[in-house]
């Protein structure tokens, strides 16, 4: 029986396979974001220290991850880790690592910018009551920098989710890869299945990212209002 395009979505286990692929995508994005946030916040704080060599190295780290496109970063780690460092990681682990390092790099700049925009007076007021460096960070600077970071951080998350679409390039079994398998399997019987499969994947991505970007917008508006 030749089914028409939309039936490809529901035929057999196709839809649950797509959802399984989506879960792989989300899992990688989530783990990368969590690891990246932790590393990025710590390194971002270090970037506000008056230590020139340290600042230079961290700046270099940021610029490298900013200038090299993520596709290229994926292939750099995918090819070079096993070859030069004898580290054989499965593709999804490589992808998680790359995304985490990328998130961390972007995070350092968000955190540094926010910390530096806390007024100097606040820092002095904290010093004047005898707070140590880390106490000052913990009780005064980070709580005030946090709302400044939040919109940019949520925006970064939407970028990570969108960038997970590249996972298929290093053969991770993500939602797109599975979608392509389904398309190929049904190519003969339902050539316009391609429309429905990519359509549903398109909607999946939109459903994750739209609420996130609305949230970022809302946070940003609240931050601007708090300033006035």
């Amino acid at each position: 029986m030749a089914h028409s395009g939309i039936d490809v979505l529901t035929a057999g286990s196709n839809f649950s396979r797509l959802l399984g692929g989506l879960w792989v995508t989300i899992k990688i994005a989530l783990i990368a974001i969590i690891i990246g946030l932790i590393i990025g916040v710590l390194l971002g704080i270090l970037r506000t220290l008056p230590n020139r060599p340290l600042r230079f190295i961290l700046r270099l780290y940021l610029e490298f991850f900013r200038i090299v496109p993520t596709v290229v970063l994926l292939f750099l780690f995918y090819y070079i880790l096993p070859k030069e460092f004898n580290v054989n990681l499965p593709a999804d682990a490589v992808a998680t690592l790359v995304f985490a390092l990328w998130v961390a790099a972007e995070m350092t700049d968000i955190v540094r910018g926010a910390l530096e925009s806390v007024p100097q007076h606040q820092k002095e007021a904290g010093q004047a009551i005898g707070l140590t460096y880390w106490q000052l960070q913990r009780y005064v600077l980070i709580p005030q920098a946090w709302p400044l970071c939040l919109p940019a951080t949520v925006n970064l998350m939407t970028r990570v989710v969108k960038t997970t679409s590249l996972l298929m390039l290093i053969s991770v079994m993500d939602v797109i890869n599975i979608g392509q398998q389904i398309i190929e399997a049904n190519n003969k019987t339902a050539p316009n299945g391609v429309f429905w499969i990519y359509g549903i994947i398109f909607i999946f991505y939109f459903m994750i990212n739209y609420p996130l970007s609305r949230w970022a917008k809302h946070l940003n508006k609240r931050r601007l209002e708090a300033n006035h």
């Binding site: 679409s165 990519y198 398109f202 991505y205 990212n209």
Partner: peptide, 12 residues
């Protein structure tokens, strides 16, 4: 346009 990946847009 902002909330979907370019890769999927291209596939379409």
């Amino acid at each position: 346009a902002r909330n979907t990946p370019l890769l999927i847009q291209l596939f379409f």
